[in-house]
Every structure is written in structure tokens, then in C-alpha cells.
Design a protein around this nucleic acid. Sequence first.
DNA 1: ATTAGCACTCTAAACTATTGAGTGCTAAAT
DNA 2: ATTTAGCACTCAATAGTTTAGAGTGCTAAT
Lengths: 348, 348
Amino acid sequence: MSESELNDRAQHLLKALVEKYIKGGQPVGSQALARESGINLSPATIRNVLSDLESLGLVSSPHTSAGRVPTDQGYRLFVDSLLNVQPLNNDVVCQLEEKLGSDDDPQDLIHRASTILSSITNLAGIVTIPKHEYIALRHIEFLPLSQKSVLVVIVINENEVHNKIINTPRAFNRSELEQAANYLNAHFAGTDIQAVKKSLINELKEAKNNADEFMTTAINMASQALNSESESKAGDYILDGEINLMNYAEMSDLDKLRLIFEAFNKKRDVLHLFDQVIRSEGVQIFIGAESGYTVFGDCSVVTSPYKVDGKVLGVLGVIGPTRIAYDKVIPVVDVTAKLLGAALNHQK
Amino acid sequence: MSESELNDRAQHLLKALVEKYIKGGQPVGSQALARESGINLSPATIRNVLSDLESLGLVSSPHTSAGRVPTDQGYRLFVDSLLNVQPLNNDVVCQLEEKLGSDDDPQDLIHRASTILSSITNLAGIVTIPKHEYIALRHIEFLPLSQKSVLVVIVINENEVHNKIINTPRAFNRSELEQAANYLNAHFAGTDIQAVKKSLINELKEAKNNADEFMTTAINMASQALNSESESKAGDYILDGEINLMNYAEMSDLDKLRLIFEAFNKKRDVLHLFDQVIRSEGVQIFIGAESGYTVFGDCSVVTSPYKVDGKVLGVLGVIGPTRIAYDKVIPVVDVTAKLLGAALNHQK
DNA sequence: ATTAGCACTCTAAACTATTGAGTGCTAAAT
DNA sequence: ATTTAGCACTCAATAGTTTAGAGTGCTAAT
């Protein structure tokens, strides 16, 4: 029996093994499976099957006299074709709906999504900041703050608000600023922010040619504000519940843990990983080395894009040890993504 | 020799011991001190002195055949009367000045202060959000976002900007909102935010009596925005570099570390501790149990309030193991507090 | 094809030296 | 009266040993 196609019995045993290992965290032996797998077989027979699973690379044993542990590929097969995804507990649904009910500040929603993900799953929760492929300038407003500084308030898309304080060459009074804002709003409200930036460059030239000092600075201010705007959206995420990872025995290696935390801080690796998900449908899972990042070699990542109007705005998910309760975590990530999308949509 | 007054020799040895222990992290024995303390005494004599220091509670030994380690009280005496505070390295000063140079967003400054504190000291850096005893409303602005929601922009004090999106019973057009804002600005600009809230309550009654629907909602909106405003300032801080703590051997106990991280997350204990500093002058240090919080029983906290115009706005500091280089950390905290105060002041 | 039996392997835990750093005490030296 | 050499003693850390038990793989019987 070494066909690469697994028969039902082998599948069933693999499933039982993974489930037991996920529960207990201890290598699973033939006796335990004989007792608890539901299949009526002697340990000896099960040993034969396990031996096959091992040569297929689905399980491995830490040492001769230990039981078997799923490999990344073992988990993969389990997740792809053996898993019984649990319907979401009613309690959990309520929690999610409550926390992700309508709220008008997108930032708040993102934060809450991240918190609720981590607290429900006891893993680290991550939500990327929404990234609109098309950033429509909705409104711009200037307020004088002091002699040399002006507050620029920019509203983009539905209701994302950003502030930027910029310095000006001279003091402007309120009506001057109002005039400038009116001009910009009249010309550019509803336009994509990139397009606005391009237009402004042209207008800037023109204003300079006309030696129109006022328009020159007005346009300058707008450009500055919009520039730092698009920068700040360069890619970021909200992380919560990293500490949960310290509770897992398999993460008790302080050095590995530190590397993971450092990766969380640098953000780069996580963002790259999440970028891969952005074009996929529904929940996507990276098990162990599958992520391609050695830092997360002992971790699993369960992710899902979240969308508004069918457009993917970002990705959310959880990170934990490979030994996580996929059957429970997957629907949580799935539903959170949907509810977050809905909440962001609801604001319109 | 068991007078509670320490003679010079004993002080010198304590100093040498603390310095060596801070450097090496290993219990210090009589031989090492004989060699390196600069005093020409035999190990035997030094043992006698150490024995005295121990009965005074200034040092202790982990076990019979280990050297001595400073106790909290030992560190306290060291810090209070034996410490040679190092002048700040020029490099470090440059770094600090660069990062805390003028920038017009207070939030950004706080963040940067926290980052730079942690990166210079290799400890966890903490900066509390500025807390103005007197919050002056400077400007309020309403912008229509959608049918049922309005963006409220509030500028308080010098240039702290806050946004709040609130729901309204009906749609308002731009000019209505402008009118409301004008009214509020005319009446309340420059007034303390608490006073504004009180006045608004009265005006609200009046408007209701007059059945003035428009003013009623306008005032309601303002109240809502101001309320969530004062809440959000309830007490918070920016933390950075917690991961640094994982590098210290004495913090290698995962459970303790987790408790500390949890305390950082909950924020309560740190805020209480920092509150004690708010009325003190200059750098304040809590060594081990002195903080009064068991979570930080193995930690030292070096803090300083930061001020603008002589008014304390907040507190910043670092947290690390008790074994930290006080001579270097103290001036860093001190100067950072001063530069942060200056940067916040500079904005006016 | 399945299983009982059994020898074998290897970890984890419990014990047992062994080493060496550092102490405290005592008696001699300064 | 200090200081110090000398020495017995303590105790953590390390390495080596033993034991127990869990689990395996193989073989021969069912």
C-alpha cells in the first residue's frame, strides 16, 4: 500500500490524528487512535497505516518512540479535504455583529475588527488598512491655525477623514482660505486623487506664470496635503493580540517569538504575504513554510480579503501556531471579513 | 561595624558592585571586587564589608556560593548618592534633536518621542498623551458627509485636531452647517471645553423651548462631538520597543513577560504609576517593588514629566529590568522630556 | 489483510557524582 | 584594632547513569 491516492481508511485516520493533535498538542500514537478514531482496528494495523502516511510526508515523528505529528502537507490535506468546518457559535456571531455594527469611522472599525478577531480566536489578529484603488477627493477644507500654519482637512471616498498641518509662507485669513478651498472643491470634488495631483502640477505652472502668489500657495498647500495623503496609505495594518501567541507551548522559544514580534513591527513580511491574498476569493490559508517566510515557518495564517461593492479593500486574518483549530478559525475569519465589508459599505 | 551610616569604603565597594553587576548581569564576588574596585584590599576584607552591606539590606546573594547582587534598596542608594550621571553622547543629542525637531502634529511628536526613547535606551519607551488641564476650543467646523452624517472637525488648544463623525436626524446642507459653526465659533472660540459643554446644555433647553429645530440639532451635534472628545483624552499613552525587553536574560521568564505585556495593553497600571510623577520635578525613578505594582516588581521605571510654559502636559519614560544603565538612561529621559516640551511649545 | 507478540529505541525524569566559585569563620599578621 | 591567609563548607551547574514508559517496527500466527 503505497499508492499516492489515499484510501478512505487512511484519510479517516489522518483526520483523527490531526484533530487529536490540534486538541492536545502531543504526538499521537497508534493506541490512542485505535481507541478514539472510531475505527475498529488494532494498534498494529494503525501503525502500518501511519507508516504509509509518514512515507507520503503527511505525518512525521519527532523521534522513534513518540507518536506522529502532522506535517505542513498533512495539515494541508486535512484543511483541503478532510475538514468539517464548524458553524459559528451563536454567541460569537452576536459579538461580531455588535462590534462591527454600523459605526461611521472606518479607522475605528478596522481596530475593532482586529481586536475581535484576536479575542475570539486567541490568536494574533491583523487587518490591513483599506486601500481604495480609486481614491476620490470628496472635500477639502483649509483652516488657519497660526501665523504660519494651516490645517488641511481632506475627506476622501465615502467618509475617510484625514488631517494635515502644513506650514505656509505667509499668514492667510479665513476668507482667503475659504476661497482657495472653494476653488479646489469646485474643480476637483469627485476626482481621483492621482488625477488631482497631476492637474495641480499643471495649474501650479500656470499660476506661477501669472505671478498669482495666492493661487500658487493655495495649490502648493493642496499638493502637499495630498502627497502626504497617498504616502500614508502606502500599506499598513492594525495588529492586536500578539500576546496571545505567548500562550502556546510551541511558541515558548523566546528567540523565535522575538523574531515574530519583530516581523510584526517591521510589517514588511506580513504585508507581502497579505498582498498575495488580495486577488483571491474567500478564505486563504498558509500553513507553516507555505507562507514563504522563515519567521512564520512554524505558524499558520488564515486570511480573507474584505470587500465593499465587490471591490477588495483590504485583507484581514489571524496568525498562530500551525496547530490551530482550523474548523473554528476559518468561519470566524470568513464572517469577520464579510461583516467588516458590510459595515464599511453601510456607511455610504 | 554595623552602624547604619556607611563609611566611604563601603560606599565605594557598593558602587563598584552595582556598576559591575549592571554591566555583567552576574552576581559579583569578593575576588572580582578586589581586582577591579580600585581599592587595595584582600578578598577577605571585602567579604566582611559585603557581609555588612548584606545585613543592611543593600545587597543579597542568590545562594551561598554565589556573589552578591544589589537589592532594590541597594540600587536606590546607588542612584541617590553614588551615581555619576554620564553626559549625553553627542551622537545621541543629534538624534534626539533631529527626531524632536519642530513638527506641527503633536501626535506625531509623541510617537517619535516614544520610538526614540526605546531605540536609544534599548528599553520600552512610554509617552503619555498630553493632557491639558484647560482645553480651549479653538475652532469647530461641520462638513456634510452623507444624508445622515456630518463630519465635525474640532481644533483645540494650539493645534490639536480631532475628527468625529456623527449621525443627524435629517440632512443638512452646507450653508446650514456653516451657519451653525459660525454661531458656535462666535460664541465659544477660546472658551474652555468644559464650560462650553455646560453652556450648550442651557442653550439646548432654550432652543427646545423656542421649538427651534435647527439650533436644537446643531447644539446636539456639538455636544456629541465635544463629549467624545473629552472621553478620548481620558488617559492614554504611546508605547514602543516592548520587544527590547525580550533581550534581557532576567526577563526570560515567559510568564512574567506575558504579564508585563498584558499590563502594557491594559494600560491601567502604567497610567497610575505615571500619574504619581505628574506633580514632581525632573526625573523620577522607581526601582523594583517601589513602583507598588507586582507586575513591575523586577523592573525599573525612569520617568520625567514634560512641560510647556511650565505646565506639565504629560509624562514620559522607559521601563526595563532593574539592572539598567541608570547613568546613561537618566539623562536620555531628562533631555527627551525637555526637547519634547520645547517641540510642543514651538508650535504656537 | 489483520493482529498478537516481542525486541528495540529513545525521551523524560530521577539520581548521583564532580567541579568550582564563593562564602564565613578562625587564627595569625600587621 | 584591622587586615588577611587558610580552610572547611555550601550550593548551583554540569555531566553521567539509571529507570520507566511510550511507541515503534518486524515477524509470525490468525
